[in-house]
């Protein structure tokens, strides 16, 4: 249970997360703003400007509604987990270039709007994965970090599998294909939500958390397989002409999001 005053480990965690969040998000905005106006109009950089506050709003709404009761009612702990989340997601964005995505360069310098959509989906997916780890009662912030690590790993694993199976990120960052961007962004949000739900619930033990993550998180793999199939169809079609958003973009994206929402609703309240 939490007490009104923060423990030393919580203070240290908040300072570390705050430092990471400050540096990484300051760099994110600096890279978005400092680029010469001729390289890209301000409107083209909108996803870089808007995604972090949107993600923060989503995290706040989930914390305020579903976190442990002594968090939802405590401004101090709400702030603590907001800072932890900001640092967590900021740190995770360091891995984006390994997937071929460099948001500031792709969006602000290369004028690739599709990359902006993907970056937004990836950040929102990470936020949902982290938010799920905050749901339920537990002994302290370290169980949130452990569960967030599981959910985040699941998200990056899913992204890696999709790229291995169909090279979808390259369609976005190299081909600048908005159809692929909408689909992959939706997939990352859907997988983030499923992974977050898989680690949600009251803390019992490490083994129990791992079991829950595997038992409840595996449906994300179904979406991954679907995206690999759709991505391959997309790649084959793109050899002739770019597939339209109305065919291979919005419908699969809607299916991923609706599928994740239906699955989470079916699971019901966490235990």
């Amino acid at each position: 249970m939490y007490t009104a005053a923060m423990s030393p480990s919580e203070v240290i965690a908040m300072l570390v997360a705050g430092a990471i969040a400050t540096v990484r998000w300051a760099l994110w905005y600096h890279r978005a703003i400092a680029v010469a106006p001729m390289l890209s109009p301000a409107g083209a950089r909108a996803p870089l400007f808007l995604t972090p506050p949107l993600a923060a709003a989503a995290l706040f709404a989930i914390l305020r509604t579903y976190a442990a009761s002594d968090v939802t009612d405590s401004p101090v702990y709400l702030a603590f987990y907001m800072v932890l989340g900001a640092g967590w997601v900021a740190a995770a964005t360091i891995l984006f270039p390994l997937y071929g995505l460099r948001p500031a360069v792709d969006v602000a310098q290369r004028r690739n709007p599709a990359a902006g959509v993907l970056a937004a989906g990836a950040v929102l997916g990470l936020t949902l994965a982290f938010a799920g780890a905050n749901i339920g009662d537990g002994p302290g912030w370290w169980v949130v970090a452990f569960c967030a690590l599981l959910a985040t790993s699941g998200l990056f694993l899913a992204w890696g599998l999709v790229d291995w199976g169909a090279g979808v990120t390259d369609m976005v960052t190299i081909d600048r294909d908005p159809t692929a961007a909408i689909r992959l962004a939706a997939l990352l949000v859907a997988v983030g939500a499923i992974q977050g739900r898989a680690v949600a619930g009251d803390w019992l033990s490490t083994a129990n958390a791992l079991n829950d993550w595997l038992d409840l998180g595996w449906p994300a793999l179904v979406l991954v397989i679907m995206e690999i199939v759709v991505g391959r169809v997309h790649a084959a079609a793109a050899r002739r002409e770019r597939p339209p958003i109305a065919v291979l973009g919005l419908p699969p994206a809607a299916i991923y999001l609706a599928g994740a929402a239906a699955y989470i609703l079916t699971l019901g309240w966490w235990t």
Binding site: G100, R102, V105, D106, R110, N112, D170, T173, I174, D175, A235, A238, R239
Partner: peptide, 9 residues
Amino acid sequence: PQDFPSGRL
């Protein structure tokens, strides 16, 4: 590679 269109494109 992101500075060029892909071979597919």
